[in-house]
């Protein structure tokens, strides 16, 4: 039962996929192919990302993280959070487990959100690829408007979220 619950999203996705197959065989086949492709992509990113999470957890002392990205880290914390997120590789869902470790280590909530924001739309590799495809002007415009956007969103979300909710999120992160 526990396994069934854990895999409920996966199971429901498979059920929907079989319905798609019955309705349209071609789209069904394409779905399987694309899923396989993104699965391969995911398997490529997973070993390094999770090993780095583990190393981060073991080697970075909590005091250092609190100092660098904690409540009193100020602008340095914001810059570090942004740089850390933009150095990442892989899809956004890879950012959440990393965010959990950062929480565990005492990083400030706004900095966590800035990290997530940078990971989502300002990754170095991504911007380079964007320049190659859509040109310097397009990529730089998007990046320059996204940087303040990410920071404003982080502070907005943090301001609206109650302290007890934040505490709950941090407590949950420790149990993950």
């Amino acid at each position: 039962m526990k396994i069934l619950r854990k895999y409920r999203l996966f199971i429901s996705s498979l059920i929907i996929l079989s319905v798609v197959f019955i309705l349209n065989k071609e789209i069904g086949m394409n779905s399987v192919k694309t899923t396989y492709k993104s699965f391969k992509q995911m398997m490529f990113y997973i070993p390094p990302v999770f090993i780095l999470i583990g190393l981060l957890d073991v080697w970075i002392p909590k005091e250092a993280m609190v100092h660098l990205m904690g409540e009193k880290s100020g602008i340095l914390g914001i810059i570090l959070a942004f740089l850390f997120g933009s150095c990442a590789a892989g899809p956004l869902y890879g950012a959440f487990p990393v965010a959990a470790v950062l929480m565990e280590k005492g990083a400030k909530f706004t900095n966590i959100l800035i990290f997530i924001g940078a990971w989502s739309c300002a990754k170095v590799g991504m911007v380079l690829f964007e320049i190659a495809n859509l040109g310097m002007k397009f990529a730089m415009t998007r990046l320059l408007i996204d940087i303040p956007g990410i920071i404003i969103i982080a502070f907005l979300v943090s301001a609206v979220t109650s302290d007890s909710e934040k505490k709950r999120i941090y407590d949950d992160a420790e149990n993950l």
Partner: peptide
Amino acid sequence: SFSHVLPMFLGVLVFVGMII
């Protein structure tokens, strides 16, 4: 951390495959 998110990852991947 990996085994914790794997079930979710798999589900998300299949949905994404269908959407694309």
